[in-house]
Design a binder for these strands. Structure first.
Lengths: 252, 252
DNA sequence: CCCACTCTTCCACTGGATGGAAAGTGTCCG
DNA sequence: CGGACACTTTCCATCCAGTGGAAGAGTGGG
């Protein structure tokens, strides 16, 4: 979401730059805000916004602010990478939530990031930092470690060559620590992320495999640090296997 | 999704026409199929597709077919009209599912259609005709009747002036029948849709109110015709009220 | 090999998109 | 009330991003 980068010359590039102004922290924006944050001239912004509204990609609320429209959500719901997986996994995620009573998350890998495709949390849940659609770096979360440990070697190399962002003093920040953590995941078949994003939670994660045995996603439970991770680990791993079977995976 | 309509002249119009080729029944498509179904010339289609891929709005799978990409899903996840509501409602929907063990759905109104924003179903659920993001006409579903009964008068008038599509021999197809059904909903405070879409199911629906008391959504349970609707009705209504409270509604 | 189908590339041309400037609207303050 | 300011909308001569027919490349089957 650049104001320091050159504005794209292509119309679609501009439209997507404009849509990128909307984030979880800025779910709505005025025309001037859209212009400022996108770097597009005001009248260009105005014209683009009007057309995006015509296509229901943007909506205008009562106070003159714009929000992402239903049409994008409908189209997004057709994305097999996210929602197909989510729908098949949901019953098992709910089972996991029922037996653990902790926050449950399902995530996939998109390049060097985790994308959360589902989260089930209680009404009075322990600190929640993710939502549907949100992203975090692979190295800093349980699901991310699982997805990275089983990712193609060139993906792993790229991740190890990337600066590892620090969230807490527990976050993995060196390539050697990450390499070691990934080896541990592959040896154990699961990951425990220890206060890497928040100092009050652990994340226990297990792989979800597609029909061909590839790790297509990861499921995790987030627990407060007072909770022993081994009380939820079997359920998380069982959930990962159940979803894998629902996706067509068979143990060889 | 027109091949009989003129192709838009504007680029954004063309892009959205192209994206509209993807449906629940056609989650992936080849370049030629996209060209054929959108009415856009092959080379235009090719160029648009390449750029949409660059923006992650489309993905290409291993067999050369295109699918809707993650980026649209991420953007759509920011749509307050759908997912904000969904996230607040999810715990209550899960409760409803636990106590009824039947399919639970949450829907909003978009003009003269129902848009389903959540569905929770068991692994061995009775016939499922809706999915997240899918649409049905207001007159033919429990949630649609609720949403229409409490919609602004001009919306109701427009619905009554529209041809009422028939799905089964039980579907409401005349304005008088619809007017009467809406009056019943407003009198009772809930709706029962009797085999209107599928001849083997009833849908029991109740309103979900926003902070100002407006009916912002509707929640329903779909049950097989052997099930007595009055066994689930109190739970559906309680769920509607619980979600309403979570949205800030207070009974006056 | 030929055929049918799908996908990719090319480029002279053009019309959809541009954005600075002006006009319009709304709010706040002296 | 008028002025200042911020935000939104409109206008239009200009221009360059987008166009699509045609040719070429690739694939699979007979």
């Amino acid at each position: 979401m650049p104001t320091s980068e050159p504005v794209p010359r292509s119309l679609l590039g501009r439209a997507f730059t404009l849509l990128s102004v909307f984030t979880a922290d800025r779910p709505s924006a005025t025309l001037s805000e859209l212009s400022r944050h996108s770097g597009l001239p005001l009248s260009t912004t105005h014209r683009l916004v009007q057309e995006l509204i015509a296509h229901r990609a943007l909506d205008k609320d009562g106070s003159g602010r714009f929000t992402i429209g239903l049409r994008l959500w409908e189209l997004g719901a057709l994305s097999p990478g996210a929602l197909d997986l989510r729908e098949r996994a949901l019953p098992y995620l709910e089972d996991l939530f029922e037996v653990t009573h902790h926050n449950v998350q399902l995530a996939i890998r998109d390049d060097l990031e985790v994308v959360y495709v589902e989260r089930i949390s209680a009404k009075d849940a322990v600190n929640v930092v993710t939502r549907m659609g949100s992203r975090l770096p692979l190295h800093a979360t349980g699901v991310g470690l699982v997805l990275l440990a089983y990712a193609p070697p060139e993906v792993q190399e790229r991740a190890l060559d990337t600066e590892l962002k620090q969230f807490t003093k527990h976050t993995i920040t060196t390539p050697n620590a990450l390499r070691s953590a990934l080896a541990t995941v592959r040896r154990d078949g699961y990951a425990i992320s220890d206060r890497q994003i928040e100092t009050i939670t652990y994340s226990v994660a297990a792989p979800v495999r597609g029909p061909g045995g590839d790790v297509a996603a990861a499921v995790s439970v987030v627990v407060p640090t007072q909770t022993r991770t081994d009380t939820v680990l079997p359920a998380v791993r069982a959930c990962g296997r159940a979803i894998s079977r629902a996706l067509g995976w068979r143990r060889v």
